[in-house]
Design a protein around this nucleic acid. Structure first.
Ligand SMILES: [Mn+2]
Ligand SMILES: [Mn+2]
Ligand SMILES: [Mn+2]
Ligand SMILES: [Mn+2]
Lengths: 222, 222
DNA sequence: AACTATATTTTGAATTATCAAAAGGATGTG
DNA sequence: CACATCCTTTTGATAATTCAAAATATAGTT
């Protein structure tokens, strides 16, 4: 049986693997991401391997099987459609929907999700700019770069805000750093670890490296 | 910690107790309602008693404490608001929402529920005519009677359809037996165990006793 | 009072998910 | 190569929830 614990592990494995594709995901990394002690992750990974969801190479790490990846994409779809629904239909703030979706993603049926998806007119991205996999498990791969990779004068559009921390999301919103917003890089000071961008005439924001890395934009000039 | 298992037991204890108020609810009845073997119910009831949610009198039965009743009403509220939401906002059929709500009732936060309640304009009854407890745990007590208690010529309004079985609900809908619908009792034949009602000019429905008992109407003439 | 049928509780075992702490393996430095 | 360090795995326990089957209590009936 696929429990919500399994869904959470598989989803996390998928997300962690995205960070460093091609390499096996080490157990320690998974344990940390799941907030469990390493032994717990090892035990769970064995049952995931028995279920054919991951390939497990002891003392090196794991990788999702095709089935595991499909499951991850389904859970991710539920999560992101739910986030969109909570923002668009119920009017919650984009900073609080991640936590809500974290629980609901294990409780909504395919039928209910389909209705939400329809009501939202089949959104392709969630409120944070993350792509929503289709019901068949296809996900858009778009090449995005963090603000820290732009050169002065480069004009583009914010595509994604890559942090689920409510405090950061509230900060981003207050400063107009939302997906879809146009921006131009003014300057980047390596030494000061800072990036300054202009959103509209007269509105500029300065971010430190850590924050700037979480704001992802399209490569092509928007 | 209040698990979904606990919520399901407490809700069921409340519902079963409503059937025969004043008396203790026997363990066998609870076990049957929860679809578990009697020993399982006994074990769970002991932990519920330890948590102060029920009073347990071995070999006689149980009753909810005040705290237990409040919890039951909160779960019931979530269940019924969700059912309303699924029907009104997502357009699911009234025959399928009970099952969906059975899972979602353990996953929605107070905040999300409040938004749904607001969007629905604070409904007082769910799609089946069951009263929705307020956030503070108040529930409307309305005296309803089954069709089998009406006398010929009595005109009234359907208030509640007391069965969650999708097949019965679909049957009821197809025959216009929905909450809010006006009806007049034409005749009742004790011997034939049948009840005939008129919904509108020319539209009459005949039901056997079992089915007629599930259609509840207001006492006062509607 | 004795017997029988029914309801309830106890016992023993399984499953899932977790932690703490001990044990074992891999790797890089000197 | 030997050792220290850092991972990872193993072991032993615990909590929650369940079932099957044995044991026990209650109530109803001769
Ligand atoms: Mn989750
Ligand atoms: Mn998101
Ligand atoms: Mn439930
Ligand atoms: Mn209902």
């Amino acid at each position: 049986m696929i429990t919500s614990t399994i869904e959470n592990y598989i989803k996390q494995i998928y997300l962690q693997q995205q960070e460093n594709k091609s390499k096996l995901l080490p157990m320690g990394r998974l344990a940390a991401a799941m907030h469990v002690v390493p032994g717990t992750a090892t035990a769970m990974v064995k049952t995931l391997a028995d279920s054919g969801l991951v390939e497990y190479e002891p003392r090196s790490g794991i990788r999702l099987t095709h089935g595991g990846e499909q499951l991850a994409l389904h859970v991710l779809r539920r999560h992101r459609v739910l986030e969109s629904f909570l923002v668009e239909v119920l009017g919650l703030d984009w900073s609080e929907v991640h936590e809500e979706a974290e629980t609901l993603e294990h409780a909504v049926s395919d039928k209910v999700l389909e209705r939400m998806d329809l009501l939202l007119n089949r959104p392709q991205f969630d409120p944070h700019g993350d792509p929503i996999p289709t019901a068949k498990g296809q996900i858009k791969k778009i090449r995005l770069v963090p603000l820290t990779d732009l050169k002065p004068g480069h004009a583009t559009i914010i595509a994604r805000v890559a942090d689920q921390d409510p405090a950061f999301l509230q900060f981003a919103e207050k400063n107009g750093l939302l997906p879809g917003v146009a921006l131009t890089l003014i300057e980047r000071d390596e030494q000061a670890d800072s990036v300054q961008v202009r959103l509209q005439e007269k509105i500029t924001v300065t971010l430190g490296g850590k924050a700037a890395e979480k704001i992802l934009v399209r490569m092509a000039t928007g």
